[in-house]
Amino acid sequence: MSFLRANTADEAVQLLAEGARPIAGGTDLVVGARQGKAPLPQNLVAIDRIAELGVIEATESHIRIGSGVTHAQLMVDPLIVDRLTGVADAAALVGSPATRNVGTVGGNIMNGSPAMDTGAPLMALGAVAELRSIEGTREVALTDLWCGPGRTTARPDELCTALLIPSPRDQIGSAYVRLEYRRAMEIAVVGAAACMALDAGVIVSIRLALTAVAPTIQEVTGLDVLIGERADDKSFAAIAELARDQAQPISDVRASDHYRRHTVGVMAQRAGHAAASRANGDLITVPVNRALGIGAAS
């Protein structure tokens, strides 16, 4: 085994081209290896101290989140909390303070778990992954990135360098809500993220993505029927129904398929409600899970 440290993204992609595999916080990779799920790659390149990957910035058209940004950074960054609130909701729920200190958004996305927390809000906000290799850079929408549990359409020599999110318009709100049995070191039983733009209480645009009810994070389709409707309980109930109809949950140690199907509707309804409230300018502190009292009582 070899272990090298890259100081720039260029160095990292060069080493990936030579067969190395990236490690950032190692919160999936090392845990997985110790559990015997998958051995550590033979050749590792550490990317956790590449300064250019740790930057969050707003351009005219996009908000760009470097892949090395940690969950601890994401959950308090003013730009994320203010404009991409659902992403902050998700980051604040990942693991524990220890996990959030070293775990990165790029790692969360590229690990490809259907239960990842940041995936659904990023998908609902229309995020695109920036993938870089020695051959160049390409952009892949999250809707095209995941192709199964733990699988992506990225090549092994490609490094995710950033997530690009189209700049949200002013009256937009987003939220991520998950069902959890414990308030820390927990994996989503199910989850839902909503992104909604309103004009005088009427839905102008809406996207919804679901966590842990399909082989990958799943976008809900057919929400266009809600455009022009008021963001009220009737619309939130319709969101829940669409989520339940389209979920393809499995039964496992964490929950049965029919429990997941039911609760993902509840989560979708709550995410829709919270996103609409935020679009109206109401302040719901991050993470919305705490405001809603989900998880064990404190």
Partner: peptide, 19 residues
């Protein structure tokens, strides 16, 4: 297994020592 790395807590059971 919590230890501090530059003042921040990490789970040292799941962190590579070389890193």
């Amino acid at each position: 297994c919590m230890v501090l790395l530059d003042g921040q807590p990490i789970n040292s059971c799941s962190y590579l020592a070389v890193q």
